[in-house]
């Protein structure tokens, strides 16, 4: 097995204007590593959607990105309210976001479907009242 690169980020849930800084950092790192631009775009979009979700729903959390020879794996873990109905949450257009979040341009019910759309594999591990961990993989 080849080398792995691991990046970890603490996501501040209190500042919406800073949401996306971790995704931006990962995008730049992947660029410097010479990763294919389409792969970078998919990783950046999926992670950014997840990062926004962590800020608007879960008061932040932690993101770990592992780059290995075969794939890029993003693990987004929060201690938020959990997702009571994953089936509904995966439907395009279904959203539980507050109206003020929608006025900021998010909460259209596209976040989770987008994350699935742009990645090769996505798993959601959630417990209501405890938190959610989403693992996404993009293969090279």
């Amino acid at each position: 097995m080849g080398d792995q690169l691991i990046f970890t980020y603490d996501i501040d849930g209190s500042d919406f204007t800073r949401a996306g800084e971790a995704s931006s950092s990962v995008k730049n790192k992947l660029k410097m590593l010479g990763v294919n631009s389409e792969i970078i775009r998919r990783v950046a979009i999926a992670m950014y959607e997840g990062e926004i979700n962590m800020v608007i729903h879960a008061d932040g959390g932690q993101i770990t990105v592992t780059v290995s020879d075969d794939d890029i794996v993003m693990v987004l873990a929060d201690r938020g309210p959990g997702i009571p109905d994953i089936g509904k949450a995966m439907q395009e257009g279904y959203s539980t976001a507050r109206p003020e979040v929608r006025s900021l341009g998010f909460g259209a019910g596209m976040g989770l479907p987008n994350m699935k759309r742009y990645t090769d594999q996505m798993e959601i591990d959630t417990v209501v009242g405890k938190g959610t961990t989403i693992t996404m993989k993009v293969a090279f």
Partner: peptide
């Protein structure tokens, strides 16, 4: 017509 920093962030992610 939306005007907040996340517009720039979104644009960044999409090149």
């Amino acid at each position: 017509g939306l005007c907040n920093p996340q517009v720039v962030r979104t644009a960044e992610m999409l090149d």
